[in-house]
């Protein structure tokens, strides 16, 4: 394979025709030597589909590392993804205790969370938001953890009410966990016992601001 040393010409063809300095490649991508492991010739055709896809992803990633495509695409795509995610936050239909009444009110005609795009769904597989709205007992721990892990990424957790923040008025109970952040990573805490439904609405708006600012974790990933 011929090469011009460490020249980085844009659009100079595929990896088969250029050779990049091994150290540069390693520094850039984190792999030892992309070119030498890239299959060539008839072995591509006889490789399995998984290997083909793997090779393609590696090649694209290498190429994106050279040409500043990744940051550019992320810069365009991330806000779009973030906007689409914040505009339709689906909350899990899980009401634990008293704060669930105020959570229910937020979906009702007076306060109407749907104008913010927040709707309630029963299956955790389709939800982004887990509202912990009540005290958590030792029996409920595995249930909540399972529900949280069933939700696909990206997901957020709002701890609503004093019981979810720190155990609430049940500080001398033998069965209550002192706060939801013992088992779940909480994004927003809403104090109150119970917090007014307007406070939950405010928290949803703050969550949307947070999603917009931080972007979303699943942007256009290459590799």
């Amino acid at each position: 394979m011929e090469g011009d040393g460490s020249g980085k010409e844009a659009g100079a063809g595929g990896p088969k025709e250029r050779r990049v300095d091994a150290d540069e490649a390693a520094a850039d991508i984190g792999e030892e030597d992309v070119c030498e492991t890239a299959p060539s010739g008839p072995s591509i055709v006889m490789a399995s589909l998984d290997e083909l896809i793997e090779w393609l992803v590696r090649v694209l990633d290498w190429g994106a590392g050279i040409v500043p495509v990744k940051p550019l695409v992320n810069k365009i795509a991330r806000p779009v993804f973030a906007w689409s995610q914040r505009a339709s936050v689906f909350a899990l239909h899980s009401g634990l205790a008293c704060c669930a009444m105020e959570m229910g009110v937020v979906g009702m005609p007076r306060l109407d969370s749907e104008r913010l795009g927040v709707a309630w769904f029963s299956s955790p597989r389709r939800c982004d938001l887990f509202l912990v709205n009540g005290w958590i007992t030792k029996k409920t721990r595995p249930v909540l953890r399972t529900l949280y892990e069933q939700m696909p990424e990206p997901k957020w957790v709002i701890a609503m009410g004093e019981c979810a923040i720190s155990g609430g008025p049940w500080h001398d109970s033998y069965n209550v966990i002192y706060g939801a952040d013992e088992l779940l990573p909480v994004d927003i805490y809403i104090p109150g016992c119970p917090p007014r439904p307007e406070a939950l609405l405010d928290a949803l708006v703050k969550l949307q601001t947070k999603i917009q600012k931080e972007g979303t974790t699943s942007g256009l990933k290459l590799g």
């Binding site: 155990g167 500080h171 001398d172």
Partner: peptide, 9 residues
């Protein structure tokens, strides 16, 4: 015989 104590205690 099962005693509970508050969080302050």
């Amino acid at each position: 015989s099962f005693k509970i104590e508050s969080i302050h205690e």
